[in-house]
Design a protein around this nucleic acid. Structure first.
Lengths: 177, 177
DNA sequence: ATTTTATTTCATTAATTACAGAAATTACTG
DNA sequence: CAGTAATTTCTGTAATTAATGAAATAAAAT
């Protein structure tokens, strides 16, 4: 499969950015490729298009599936698996955030709970206790809040985002009132 | 310097999480240590407390300073540099988000601009063009929005976050109206 | 000015992570 | 139940990144 210059640029860049996001290049590239592709692709097509090892594609797809970013699709009369991803940016964003929360925030909240519950905790200085409590609260509230945002419909969200500055004022007013 | 069990746990965990966040362990540990510490610490104190190489501390601090998460403080009658970080979670969060945006979002927006401006772009299929445009818009609006949120005062923000569910409704109402 | 103290730079080593290619497994077909 | 196609697992290698320790530099004190 030949990629158009624009698609190729996009895929390469996404791969690059992936590494900065803690995602390996191939995983990010595959996702970008599926995102740009009109139809679901087989692992072999992906392999050939990206010029990476077949096994690499296999593992990367596995990872993408575990993050729920990619789904298997079947084509009549073809026993091979075909892979596709959502074309809805908001949908994708939600999945990514959910995954990151699970991997990066939840373990931290877990630790905070343990710290607070530990018998050592009471022995700590007031400052230490306070700092820990504050931090935990902050993270907890923040995740709660993001959960709520993520629950919004794509259309609502886009409208919301486009409201822009108004939001801040709206919120500021409400927060004071 | 001896760490209390709770602080030690916290520092170690933060270091672990750092790696998942794309920050190296030492950098994250130093930040956690300064965050928990009542007073500013010298590089040597940090070195000794964390049990890492002095040069490692030097480089890590340099990185933290470049991200504006750590500042140098001077103590009367002591020629050594002392280092400290803000104890305000929201302040820290803002700095982290700003840094990530700069490193992870801005280059992407840059690429999108280039893609859209390129002569190849017009030759692409409608679907491809649309996908690229949609994605770019999404990212742009999202960053605009987060910029606005980050501009809020800590107190306002905490109130806002605590409003919780109300926000979604508020926003939904406004978005429709 | 020279010794001591503090800090940074740099070259090397260690550790981690990504990737390829072969081998093994699984699932389907005739 | 062969035989083939599809996929995964595994092992080794390459590449990247983190961390060390020594050497170089800079700053201050005597």
């Amino acid at each position: 499969m030949e990629l158009s210059p624009v698609t190729q640029q996009f895929v390469l860049h996404w791969g690059e950015m992936g590494t900065r996001w803690g995602v390996n290049r191939t995983v990010a590239q595959i996702h970008a490729l599926l995102y740009m592709s009109e139809n679901a692709l087989t692992a072999d097509e992906i392999t050939e298009t990206l010029g990476v090892a077949r096994s690499n594609v296999s593992n990367s797809i596995k990872e993408l599936i575990s993050w729920r970013l990619v789904k298997v699709a079947h084509v009549m009369g073809d026993r091979r698996d075909h892979f596709e991803t959502s074309k809805d940016v908001w949908e994708l964003f939600k999945l990514i955030v959910a995954g990151r929360k699970q991997r990066e925030i939840d373990p931290t909240l877990q630790i905070f709970e343990e710290l607070l519950a530990s018998p050592d905790f009471k022995k700590e200085s007031r400052e230490t206790r306070q700092r820990i409590e504050e931090t935990q609260q902050f993270i907890e509230i923040l995740t709660q809040w993001s959960d709520e945002m993520l629950r919004l419909e794509p259309e609502t969200l886009m409208k919301v985002l486009k409201l822009g500055a108004k939001i801040s004022n709206l919120i500021r007013r409400e927060a004071k009132g």
